[in-house]
Computed example of a mutant assay.
Amino acid sequence: MHVHLPVTVHQARLGPREFQVVRPARPPRRALLLDEGPYLNAYVDDEAARLLAGLWSLAATSPRSLIHVPLRPTGVGSPEPGARPLDLVLLHHSLQFAPSRWKELRGLLGPGRRRSLSAPASEPEVDYEALHHAENRDHFHQHLHAETLFVTGSAKVFRETAGAFREVARHGPAHVRDTTRLGHYCARLHSGDMRTGTRTREIHIEYTDSWPDGPA
């Protein structure tokens, strides 16, 4: 089963190399990614969570592209004091793209070409025991540069972790609106999920329907 994502595809050259950048045709309207000290916190409604799940899966099937998700919209409201709003870039480690060059590349991008790309809509079975093997090389790496979080990894690890966003989209709205519950629904991409070392921070994905323009 696959999902079709409306995107814009951009081409730009840095020196001898040409790069392809893919963006959602319509960036998520109710979504924020914040650097809040020890954690990276993503706040999303169900539509944004489904879109991020699709783009996360697209990163697994598009190893030659940088997937850029603008997540710093001006109309969503002010973040918590001390929080740093971030955009998101997902990329396959084989691209060997230096985040320090992102601002330059971003400045070269034009309006792009509208396309519809297909991405898997389901997650494979995960061999959790294999994650702890010394020879496992399916890791995520994080870098912060130019107000952007770069998440770099293998196709396998992108495929196996996209489900965290689908889980929030699927269960978040009913859970939060159920008055018998505590009203908080989230999923976490932690060190075990992301096959990371101690230097990579947990990504906390929280469903919220409290936005300045009304409920999600």
Results as ranks from 00 to 15, higher is better:
Glu125His: 11
Gly112Glu: 13
Gly153Trp: 11
Arg170Gly: 03
His171Leu: 10
Glu160Tyr: 14
Leu55Met: 14
Leu88Cys: 13
Tyr185Glu: 01
Leu109Cys: 06
Thr161Glu: 13
Leu182Ser: 04
Thr196Phe: 09
Arg13Val: 07
Thr74Ile: 08
Arg23Ser: 12
Pro212Lys: 12
His141Pro: 03
Val44Asp: 03
Ala42Pro: 02
Leu52Ser: 06
His175Gly: 07
Trp211Phe: 09
Arg159Trp: 03
Val69Ile: 15
Leu40Trp: 11
Gly107Ala: 07
Asp45Ala: 02
Val21Pro: 01
Arg188Ala: 01
Leu91Pro: 04
Thr208Arg: 11
Trp102Pro: 01
Arg137Lys: 10
Leu189His: 00
His133Gly: 11
Ala48Arg: 08
Pro215Leu: 00
Asn41Cys: 15
Gly163Ala: 01
Val22Lys: 02
Pro16Val: 13
Arg137Thr: 08
Asn136Ile: 01
Gly82Thr: 05
His139Tyr: 05
Glu129Cys: 12
Val22Gly: 04
His143Asn: 11
Pro24Leu: 05
Arg64His: 15
Thr74Arg: 13
His133Cys: 11
Met1Lys: 06
Tyr185Arg: 01
Pro79Asp: 09
Leu182Gln: 04
Arg114Asn: 10
Ser191Gly: 11
Val22Arg: 02
Leu182Ala: 06
Val44Asn: 05
Tyr207Gly: 11
Pro215Asp: 00
Pro99Lys: 14
Val151Trp: 09
Val44Ile: 05
Val76Leu: 03
Arg199Cys: 04
Ala31Leu: 10
Asp138Tyr: 15
Val7Gln: 06
Arg30Phe: 00
Pro79Tyr: 10
Gly37Ser: 12
Glu47Met: 02
Ser210Trp: 14
Leu144Thr: 02
Pro70Val: 09
Glu167Cys: 12
Pro38Ser: 15
Tyr43His: 11
Glu47Cys: 00
Glu123Pro: 00
Gly37Pro: 12
Ala119Ser: 15
Asp138Leu: 14
Ser78Thr: 15
Thr152His: 05
Leu189Trp: 00
Glu206Asp: 07
Thr148Asn: 07
Gly172Asp: 02
His171Gln: 06
Trp102Arg: 01
Glu18Ile: 09
Arg17Trp: 06
Ala155Pro: 15
Pro24Asn: 03
His4Asp: 04
Thr161Trp: 10
Val44Phe: 03
Tyr207Lys: 12
Ala146Val: 08
Ser154Arg: 13
Phe19Cys: 06
Gly172Phe: 04
Phe97Arg: 07
Arg29Pro: 10
His141Phe: 14
Arg201Cys: 05
Gly192Tyr: 06
Pro63Val: 03
